[in-house]
């Protein structure tokens, strides 16, 4: 069998070119990384370091206390922390999937699935946080 010979140029046309995407995901991956650092620091400070003197094991009341004091601001911090963790983690997972498969259909399906998971948890977490904040004493 004679090897099919083409110019490098025409072979180059057979190279699969993926859609122009990824820039914003990459930017958000960086932004959410910084966000995680910031919001996690706030979260840890209020749930732990600010209450270092309190004796005994960690209780629900302690976890809830910042909500009682700062209400909406603290709830917003918690939700942003949730958002950053979800985005950063799920987009990381998407990257792993994209490294492993080049099947465009599977890639699209997984992206939609991860998006739904992310949205689901964001909404559910938001609902929980709203409940905590609105019932705060």
């Amino acid at each position: 069998m004679q090897r099919e010979v083409t110019s490098v140029t025409s072979r180059a046309q057979q190279v699969r070119v993926a859609p122009r995407a990824g820039t914003w995901l990459w930017i958000w991956q960086r932004l959410t990384a910084y966000g995680l650092l910031l919001f996690l620091a706030v979260h840890l400070y209020f749930t732990y370091f600010a209450q270092l003197g309190t004796p005994g094991a960690l209780t629900f009341a302690q976890v809830q206390r910042p909500f009682n004091v700062y209400t909406l601001a603290y709830a917003l911090n918690e939700w942003l922390l949730l958002f950053c963790a979800l985005f950063h983690g799920l987009n990381g997972l998407r990257n792993i999937i994209f490294d492993w498969t080049t099947h465009q259909g599977l890639r699209r399906a997984m992206t939609v699935l991860l998006l739904l998971v992310g949205l689901g948890f964001a909404v559910y977490g938001g609902w929980v946080l709203w409940t905590l904040a609105s019932t705060a004493a």
Binding site: V5, T6, S7, V8, T9, S10, A12
Partner: peptide, 10 residues
């Protein structure tokens, strides 16, 4: 330049 001009190489 070969690629620019699409010159065939074996």
């Amino acid at each position: 330049e070969l690629i620019r001009f699409g010159i065939k190489v074996y």
